[in-house]
């Protein structure tokens, strides 16, 4: 085999491997394992709620998209289809109860359903933002089981 053919063949093989790696690790990369993410902040629910109420823009910049652990007195547990949401209630507004809504990772649905209202609970999840009524947390797990 001629030298130029060997080089071309080598380049094609390297290109194919690079393409496969890009497909696997970039294009087709998995969502993070949310349960294992270390929280960037640990806060009391009341403090986080007040932070967003008093300074939405600043708090959004600081907290949105981050993994946060929050501790507080649980208001209620809501269950709709496969979604289980732990709710910390601080106010009433146009959409009813207002506060912090934490949608659980499915694995934690059964545990969350057993949580008692008014009980102290620590939950961590990704802060999605404040919609002027509620702070929304998603991919949540219960820390103090």
């Amino acid at each position: 085999m001629k030298t130029w053919m060997k080089i071309l063949l080598g380049l094609i093989v390297v290109g194919l491997i690079a393409g496969m790696l890009v497909f696997k690790f970039v294009y087709n990369k998995k969502h993070p394992d949310y349960e294992s993410i270390t929280p960037v902040f640990t806060l009391k629910t009341q403090d986080l709620y007040q932070a967003f109420k008093s300074n939405k823009a600043g708090s959004s910049t600081l907290y949105n998209g981050k993994c946060i652990a929050i501790t507080g007195k649980l208001g209620k547990i809501e269950s709709v289809d496969t979604l289980v949401t732990a709710v910390f209630v601080f106010n009433q507004g146009m959409f009813g109860d207002e506060g912090i809504r934490c949608t659980m990772i499915k694995k934690f649905n059964d545990t969350a359903k057993k949580l008692l209202p008014d009980g102290e609970v620590k939950i961590k999840g990704i802060c999605m933002g404040f919609n002027d009524s509620d702070i929304i947390f998603d991919k949540c797990s219960i820390v103090n089981q």
């Binding site: 993070p32 999605m128 919609n131 998603d138």
Partner: peptide, 16 residues
């Protein structure tokens, strides 16, 4: 009639 949605809460099959 009102609805509000946070954009970060949209879930895609692919993380990218």
């Amino acid at each position: 009639f009102v609805f509000k949605v946070l954009l970060k809460s949209f879930e895609f099959e692919k993380a990218l």
